[in-house]
């Protein structure tokens, strides 16, 4: 317990790094995922094919491999874009997390789009809206609301996935836990429980919110 208290500022620091990874990668994944989902339901066959290929490829690749690609293979091919190594690894981890998470966002949104009652899209078309207008003004706003619980589950998974960034030395919670545990072999359990607590601070409230919204939506329909 003393080790945890003595390293409390380090915990907060690592927690903030985890949060930063989570927020930036989450927002990027949300944007990419929305575009991919829109392409997946679009009238243009080529866009559908590109989006389906992207989803299948990324979903069947382990996150560790995506991260390895961004952090080790890309610098080998293109250089580190003028960044020194540590900031580059942070950026690479963020990009890898965003790419890895985006197909899950896209699939959640697509199931939401399919879940919007058919009459909504028909009504929009019958008042003369095109595909883009139907999607952005009628279908997506309802789909977003319906997929909030599954999207929150994606965010929870992302929170836990940020720990993989430790593999390239990004100083987030898991790396801190491993370092402290290696340095203090006699206090492994409190150190790791401390790390777990910080993850639970993010994941448990999110889970509770998802449950509550799920119940509300279930009553509405």
């Amino acid at each position: 317990m003393d080790v945890v208290l003595a390293n409390f500022p380090a915990y907060i620091d690592a927690f903030l790094t985890t949060l930063r990874l989570l927020v930036v990668a989450g927002l990027a994944a949300f944007i990419i995922g929305t575009v991919v989902a829109a392409m997946r339901v679009s009238p243009v066959a080529a866009l559908r094919a590109v989006s389906a290929t992207y989803t299948e490829l990324i979903r069947n690749t382990p996150l560790t491999l995506v991260l390895f690609f961004c952090a080790a293979v890309v610098p080998n091919l293109f250089g580190t874009f003028g960044m020194s190594l540590n900031p580059y690894y942070l950026a690479a981890a963020t990009v890898a997390l965003a790419i890895y998470t985006s197909p899950f966002v896209a699939e959640a949104l697509r199931s939401g789009i399919n879940g919007v009652p058919v009459g909504q899209a028909e009504a929009a078309r019958s008042v003369g809206l095109g595909f883009g207008q139907t999607l952005t003004t009628v279908v997506l706003p309802q789909a977003f609301r319906m997929v909030v619980p599954p999207l929150i589950n994606v965010v929870i998974a992302l929170t836990k996935n940020t720990s993989v960034a430790a593999g390239f030395g990004v100083g987030e919670l898991f790396l801190l836990g491993r370092r402290l545990a290696n340095a203090n072999g006699n206090a492994v359990i409190p150190i790791l429980l401390g790390v777990v607590t910080f993850y639970l601070i993010i994941t448990i409230p999110l889970g509770l919110i998802a449950n509550r919204i799920e119940k509300k939506v279930a009553v509405l329909r």
Partner: peptide
Amino acid sequence: LEFIRGVPVLLMMLFILLV
């Protein structure tokens, strides 16, 4: 269940290995 679902798998592996 909530506890298991909220903890990264990576951390669980390390925990089992060390503890």
